[in-house]
Simulated scan of single mutants.
Amino acid sequence: MLQFMDFEKSLVNLEHLANSVPGALYQLERSPDGQLKFNYVSQGVEAIFGCSAESLANDVTLLSEIIHPDDLQSVLSSMHNSARYQYLWVKEYRVIKNGRVSWIYGHAVTSQQADGSTLWNGQMLDITERKMLELKVEENQRNLMLAERVAGLGHWQLDLETGQSQWSDTMYNLHGLDKSRVTPSLALTLERTHPEDRQAVTDAINAVKQSGARDVEHRIMLGDGEIRWLRQSGIYRIDEAGREIIFGTTQNITDYKELELKLRETGGNDEHTGFYNRRLMLQSLQRRFSLYQAHSEHQYYVMVVRVANNAETLKAVSKIVRQNIQDYDTPGCLGKGIIVVLMSTLSAEQNKNCLQATRQLLEQHGIEHKIALESAQITDLRFDDVLLRALN
């Protein structure tokens, strides 16, 4: 009698346990002729499917009304294959519960019985919240990829220890490479980079570790002999594992660069400083500001120096400015003793250091001057807004 009572007690305890776990526990049987029936379903199935355990146990055909019609055949096929090959059944699918769509995760251990029937002992969980987040992430990723293709912009990640990279799909297009045939790496990037620009790329990578952010313009060589100009902007970080990582973006600036070079060839330099003249400098400021408006991660810094408007002073100041700016900074003379430098680096600290060094040398040479560094703000509508703040 005691043993019988213990057995009944254990059944009660198991039922209580089954109804306490997340989701629903079940045993589903498929007979040799393909008929399905639930031998057991815990009470949690009501929250999963919107129907009681009793009704589902009495009428398994309710599944065809509960499972989303677009997923029903896929669920049945996965169960058929699970039974045929006797492997663990795992499936994510949609159900229609109380007129609303929910996502369910099901998994079960498959076992074949002596009479040829198949049993699935498993669990069902409502994963709607997680699935909606996943789908949102996927949608954002698709939108990002579309935006990258439209803008000719790619993003990447470089592990400085291994030299291995991760590229977005647009990066392969920018480099004229087949994603299925190459493995992104620093070595691959340098291989595709024009020989005359490889040192600049290497210097930029070394500099980003010091400044925290850096960008560089360089040429790459495509397989058909085409030369393409790219602008790469990177930010240095140490990840949770302690690895040194550079996160960056790459944009095709070939059209801008070809126009810039053409303007240089047609007399775009100021006679006293050798910098861009007013026309070419204003065009450069406008083009870079348009890039900033489209992609705010490409920060916009200008350094402005105002000195006496005479040839001797301008020549002396141009030497001092050239001595302190980066190779890829763009200096220009706007006339009336105003020299503007469009800074290439994204690092505010490095740009401030450049400002301080320039100011110090101007003071040492006894050159009367005013100097300022300004960055674009989200409220700026034109590049003139940044320039006017610096001048004032």
Rank of each mutant, 00 (worst) to 15 (best):
F4Q: 13
L14H: 09
N19Q: 04
P22A: 06
Q27G: 00
E29L: 04
R30F: 13
G44Y: 06
E46K: 14
A47N: 11
I48D: 07
G50W: 01
C51N: 05
S52R: 01
S52M: 03
A53C: 06
E54S: 11
A57T: 11
N58A: 14
N58W: 00
D59V: 03
V60G: 01
V60E: 06
T61K: 03
T61A: 07
E65D: 13
I67D: 03
H68I: 04
P69S: 06
Q73T: 13
S74C: 05
S78Q: 13
S78A: 15
H80K: 14
H80W: 10
A83C: 10
Q86N: 11
K91W: 00
R94A: 06
R94K: 13
V95K: 01
K97V: 08
N98Y: 01
G99Y: 02
S102M: 07
W103S: 10
G106T: 08
A108M: 05
A108F: 01
V109W: 09
S111Y: 05
Q112F: 06
A114Q: 07
G116W: 10
M132V: 10
E134I: 07
L135N: 14
K136I: 05
V137E: 09
R142Y: 15
L146Y: 14
L146Q: 14
W156K: 01
L160H: 03
W167Y: 08
N173K: 10
L174Q: 04
R181M: 12
S185H: 04
L188A: 02
L190Y: 07
L190N: 01
H194L: 13
P195Y: 02
E196L: 08
D197K: 00
Q199S: 13
A204G: 06
A207R: 10
A213E: 10
V216M: 11
E217D: 14
R219V: 12
D224Y: 01
I227L: 15
W229I: 06
L230P: 00
Y236L: 08
Y236D: 07
I238R: 05
R243K: 12
E244C: 07
E244Q: 14
I246Q: 03
Q251N: 06
N252P: 00
I253D: 02
D255E: 13
Y256V: 11
K257H: 06
K257R: 12
E258N: 11
E260V: 09
E260Y: 15
L263V: 00
E265K: 13
T266K: 10
G267E: 06
G268A: 09
E271F: 07
G274A: 08
R278Y: 09
M281Y: 05
Y300W: 04
Y300D: 07
V302A: 11
M303W: 04
V305W: 05
A308Q: 12
K315G: 04
K319M: 14
K319S: 14
V321K: 00
V321G: 02
Q323C: 05
I325P: 00
Y328A: 00
D329F: 10
D329L: 13
T330K: 04
L334A: 07
V341G: 02
M343W: 01
T345M: 10
L346M: 15
A348F: 12
A348M: 09
E349R: 07
E349G: 14
N351Q: 12
N353E: 15
Q356N: 11
R359W: 12
Q360A: 15
Q364W: 11
Q364S: 11
A372Y: 00
E374S: 14
A376D: 04
A376V: 03
A376T: 05
R382A: 15
R382W: 10
F383M: 09
D384V: 12
L387W: 02
L388S: 11
R389T: 12
